[in-house]
């Protein structure tokens, strides 16, 4: 008891002598060697907050205020446009295809990298990062070079009557390319850290590999997987560059929400452009909200997951 109370008082001890006038340090409150002076602290916080306000929060507020500048009526009118609806539907469709694809690819790639040793593993890891480092426009152009009528696979596709470029398959493929790393990158470090021991334990208990995946591997990685899916989804809905190159901007057919926003903007329909933009921003905010909620709600479990 006495030990505990001493420990509780200890941090305040340095202040006591200055109060009794024995040791004043020039009247200043003594601070820890690792603590910055108040001036430095205030400056740093000020710079960080100011930067965020100027570059992140202000644009976000502008999107919503511009969208609602001419009232709710004008805002809703933007969604009366059938092309707008088509863009929303296409965006959701593309995300609905790209995210599950990347979920499967990402889990497979992470599994291979984290659980096995094989030749070319370093190459595979670099390849997964490629979409992060390549400009999306370049990614789009590569698809055009490969799948357009005059591209490498063009004649083959034409024969089979499959249109990829300037059609929905191209939009989906470009989105998959750009969003590929999100899930794999979330999973690989976690799976590497976890190692094989839990799976081996399940093996010795007689479980089949399939059963082990569902009852051990997946529960162990579910939070990383969920983060990956959320981030992947946010990017899939918001992707512009690669999709812009392969879509051909055919209104009502191959324009996703970001492309539709650009078209509206270029046609000086500012209110409509900002209305659709605000919807896209809302989707992003919802994603962020879900992520924060999960982090908050399962903070204990997430922390426990890192302990042995």
């Amino acid at each position: 008891m006495s030990d505990a109370s001493f420990a509780l008082e200890a941090p305040e001890k340095p202040a006591a002598p200055s109060a009794t006038g024995q040791l004043t340090l020039g009247g200043r409150k003594p601070r820890l060697p690792t603590e910055e002076s108040p001036a430095v602290r205030r400056t740093l916080i000020g710079v960080a907050v100011g930067f965020l306000l100027l570059f992140l929060l202000a644009p976000l507020i502008t999107v919503f205020s511009e969208a609602l500048r001419h009232g709710l009526g004008a805002f809703l009118e933007a969604f009366a446009d059938p092309d707008g609806w088509a863009a929303i539907r296409l965006t959701l469709l593309v995300a609905a295809i790209a995210v599950p694809c990347n979920l499967v690819f990402g889990v497979a790639a992470a599994w291979a990298i984290a659980k096995f040793e094989f030749r070319g593993k370093a190459f595979l890891i670099t390849l997964i990062d490629l979409p992060f480092s390549v400009s999306p426009v370049v990614a789009g152009l590569i698809y055009v070079l490969l799948y357009a009528d005059h591209g490498l696979f063009g004649p083959l596709l034409k024969e089979a009557h499959i249109r990829v470029i300037f059609a929905i398959p191209g939009v989906v493929m470009a989105t998959i390319f750009v969003t590929f790393p999100f899930i794999a990158r979330e999973l690989i470090p976690l799976m590497e850290e976890l190692g094989n021991t839990d799976e081996e334990a399940a093996l010795t208990l007689g479980a089949s590999p399939w059963r082990i995946f569902w009852t051990v591997t997946l529960p162990n990685t579910k939070w990383a997987l969920l983060y990956g899916v959320l981030l992947c989804n946010a990017r899939a809905m918001g992707e512009f560059g690669a999709v812009s190159v392969v879509s051909g901007h055919i209104r009502g057919l191959t324009t996703t929400m970001p492309l539709h926003i650009e078209i509206l903007y270029n046609e000086y329909q500012f209110t409509a452009a900002f209305a659709v933009a605000s919807l896209l921003a809302s989707l992003a905010l919802v994603t962020l909200g879900i992520k924060s909620y999960l982090e908050h709600k399962y903070a204990g479990e997430l922390a426990a997951g890192h302990r042995h």
Binding site: T197, D198, E200, A201, A202, L203, T204, G206, A207, S208, T215, V216, P219, N220, A304, G305, H308
Partner: peptide, 19 residues
């Protein structure tokens, strides 16, 4: 296979299923 051998194995770091 491991499953067919019916062995009890206790790992150094227990390998208990956390969830």
């Amino acid at each position: 296979t491991v499953q067919e051998r019916n062995i009890g194995f206790v790992f150094q770091h227990y390998a208990l299923f956390k969830h």
